[in-house]
Structure formats: C-alpha cells, structure tokens
Design a protein around this nucleic acid. Structure first.
Lengths: 252, 252
DNA sequence: CGGCGCGTTGAAATCACTCAAGGCACGTGG
DNA sequence: CCACGTGCCTTGAGTGATTTCAACGCGCCG
C-alpha cells in the first residue's frame, strides 16, 4: 500500500467536491461555471441524515440552503393540534430553502437516508450576485415549483380520494422513471405520509390501493412496491375526467 | 377652452405612462430605475377588462406578462368536467404570468372592472437581463407566492370548512386593511368564487357565514360586506387550533 | 414467544355535499 | 308604478364519501 495515497484523495475531496459531484448537472449548481466550482465548494458542507431526522424546522431562522444529492425528504407544515400536511417529496437534485421571509416556511424530514449539501445563505447570496445565470436558474426553479404547488391545490380542493391516489401514483411513476417501461415503482414513504400528502386518512389511502388492486389497475407485491397495470385508466382518473370518461377508457 | 391642451396631455400620457403610474412603487416595476422608465413604458400596453372577461386561458402560449393596476382578478384551474379551483385573488400591484413552461398554467378572469399593463414576454426579458434587480425582485415575488400557495395547500388538505372560511376572512381583512381598525371588509367575489377558492360548495360557505353571524363572530350588512366582530376567535380558528383552544378564546 | 410498528379491513358516525325550495335585490317591460 | 324574470344567496332535508373507531394480520426483532 502507499501510505500517502489516502491522504491525497481526502485532500482532493475536501478541496474539490463540487467538480466530482455526480448530481451537479441535475441541480441549480449547473449554473455555476466549471471554473468557479471552487468558490461553490468553499461554501458547501456535505451532510447525511437518517430516516426520521428533521433538518429544517418551520419557523426557525432561515440560515441555510440545501441541495439534495441522495435520498428522499418530505416537506411539511403542521397545525397547532398536530395535523400534518405534506407539501411534497424532494429527491436528488432538489434545491431547498428558497424563502421570501427570514424564517423557514415549512419543515423538512428525511424519510430515508439522505445526503445533501448545505450552503450558508449569506455566502450563497454573494455567489448569486456574481453569477446572474444562477439567479435566473433559481427563478425558473421557483416558477416550476409554483406550478407544482398549483397542481396540488387543484388536487386537494377539487379531486376525489380516488383521483388523488391515482394522481399520486401517476406523478410518482413519471418522476421515478422518465420513460416508464414496465411501470414498476418504489414508494419510499409510508401510507401515513401518502395520506398526509393527499389530504386523506391512512385508511382511505389503503382502501383505495386495495380497490385499484381488485380492479386490476395495479399490483402490490409489497406495501412499498407498486406495479401499474392500467396506466391509461390511472392517468385519466388523475386528470379528473368524470366517471363517463373513465368508463370509456375501460371499455372502449 | 384651449384646443391644444388635450392633445399635449395625451402625448405625455402616451410617452410616459410609467412615470405617472401611481401603483409603480407597489409592484415589481419599482425595480426599474426612474431614468429607465421610458424603456419600460415602451413595452407596456394598458388594458381594461370588464367583470367576467377572461384574459389568460390555461394552456395558451404564454406570450405576455401582466401587472395589475386596478380591480381584482381570480386565478383558477379547471378539471375536464368543469370543476374549478381558484388559486387566488390578485389585486393592485400583482404581477402575473410567471411561468416555467411556454404556456400559461392557470387562467385569469376579471371579477370586477380591471386595469392592467401588458408586457410582451420577449421584450420584458431584455429588460430583465439589463436590470438584475428586476430579476431579484421577481424571484422574491415568486418565493412569496410559493409560501402563499403552501398555506393554501395546508388549508385545503387539513383544515375543516369552518377553519377555511375563518382563514379566508382573516386573510382578506389583513390584505384589505394592513392595520384593520373596525374590521369592515368588502368582498368583490361571489359565494361561488369563495367556495371554489376554499374547496367547498356554495351552500357550505353560506352556512358557515350564517353560523359565524349567529355566533356573533361577524356581521353581514350585505352579502358583499362583512364586519368582523370577534377577530381573535376567527384568527385562532383560522390557525387551526383545536376546539379546546377555541373555547379558551371564547370564554377567556 | 411476545411486543411493536405498519398496513389492511369492517362497521358506524360525521362532515360536507346534493337536491330542492324559497327569499331578496335588481333590472326590465308592461 | 307594479309585475315579472333572473341571478345570487340562504336554508332545510336527505344522502353519501370519507373519517373515525376498532379489530386483526403480518413481518420484524429482541
């Protein structure tokens, strides 16, 4: 063995993590030119959180930005009596911490082991100022999240339980596999978390899954694995077509 | 009369509308320096829409931005079978048309006579590039709207009908009068629109208003005018405190 | 083996919805 | 000036989708 080698590798790691980051092209960091990655790395700290750990608390002073490099987190808000609403599930490449005010407006908790980069807000702000493309990218990100939030508002305000669960399955399958061949998907979250995302109860989610299974729309090899059998029907249900249109998809 | 005067006034109007705009300081336009207002005016067109007129259609190519200078509009999404979800009510100073994709992701309709400035997107993009402060301002706007959307998600997903109506009244009263003295508010929208905003039916909204009236939380001089009598109770209900906390507010 | 967390299923209750009728304000036309 | 129609709001009665409450099954782990 070469006793000096590990040391050198570690030094490279510490000095140049962003260049080696394999999710950079999937995140807002791609707006920082390669030549300036050193400056990005200077303000970044890599962290790991285990399932169940909360790393953003709603209402706390917003001191940091986060960039997910692995795993899945839930973003959520709470009511005083404990009712929870999940705003979304964020995974690799997602940028967290955009906030107009000085405090976080929602909490974040790891639902499986999570890797992320933490940036101090003041330091990142300087970078933002120096690279306008970075800011443009963030604006695009914010707009896209706004559109997603609006979709969720439509879902929660006007869709039935069945339509919500169908929406969830379709969205998640699209996210997991951009070009879904066999439509087999893995759900890292629990039934309770799906319920808190869809504005339903655990029981309603479970019953709707069972109903879809009975109707041959999906298979459920295990509670965290779902295979979509009738994608067109689910997509139509998710879109909120009336019962008439759904029967058309089934029969015709 | 002086026959030349009106002509001169019109000329000034056409050449320098932004300098004279009395809502400029309330909108994103405040990020354009005074000296460059001429450039902003060049790409702006003033329009008026009457109650019921739709001026943004969901799915249409996103060709323009809009800046509201008077009146109130509803922003909404539709399901194929006609169910409607109102995403919010926009009024003076609100900037519309932020979109990640090339098409509008929601519709907009005047609910009373509306005045607005229309900017072509390509032209405004140039301005955006020339004035980074403008883009920063837009990013802040987007973040703040995102936070608002998240609040609505929490409301639709986890609050009861009573809590939703209380939230609506409290939010609207805060918006109408930053420092509400007598808590008298005017509602430009119909019960149907309130219902579509809160994810409820007309009847439930109406019944909840009546219940609040019977419980001496509000007065309803006319259907479009509400006077808030028990602001603390409504605020507590809106926040989603349990029944226990609500009784505490009532009884002291 | 027993306890625990999680998911499923059944039965009963409830909140909000649907359907239906009536009231009120407003505008129009006789 | 009043009769009438229309749109919007309110109220009541009954229904139903979802929730609540409760029990049970299953896999995991000490």
């Amino acid at each position: 063995m070469h006793p000096t080698r590990p040391f050198v590798i570690l030094e490279v790691k510490a000095r140049d993590p962003c260049t080696r980051c394999d999710v950079r092209h999937r995140s807002v960091c791609s707006s920082v030119p390669d030549a300036a990655l050193g400056r990005l790395a200077e303000v970044a700290v890599e962290r790991v959180y285990q399932k169940g750990q909360t790393f953003i608390v709603e209402g706390d002073p917003a001191t940091d930005f986060f960039n997910l490099t692995g795993g899945t987190v839930k973003l959520f808000k709470l009511l005083p009596d404990g009712r929870q609403q999940i705003l979304g599930f964020a995974s690799v490449g997602h940028f967290l911490g955009l906030a107009a005010s000085g405090t976080y407006t929602f909490g974040a908790e790891a639902i499986e082991t999570v890797h992320l980069c933490r940036f101090s807000r003041p330091k990142l702000r300087v970078l933002l100022h120096d690279f306008p493309a970075f800011e443009t990218h963030l604006l695009e990100t914010a707009c896209s999240e706004l559109a997603t939030a609006h979709e969720q508002i439509l879902m929660l305000g006007r869709k039935t339980a069945q339509e919500r669960v169908a929406s969830f399955l379709v969205d998640w399958s699209r996210r997991a596999t951009p070009c879904p061949a066999d439509h087999g998907i893995q759900l890292p979250m629990s039934r309770a978390e799906i319920a808190d995302y869809l504005g339903l109860t655990i029981e309603t989610v479970s019953r709707t899954f069972s109903r879809f299974k009975a109707d041959k729309r999906i298979q459920i090899p295990s509670s965290k694995d779902v295979i979509i059998l009738d994608y067109p029907w689910l997509a139509e249900a998710a879109a909120g077509a009336g019962q008439r249109a759904l029967r058309a998809v089934s029969n015709g």
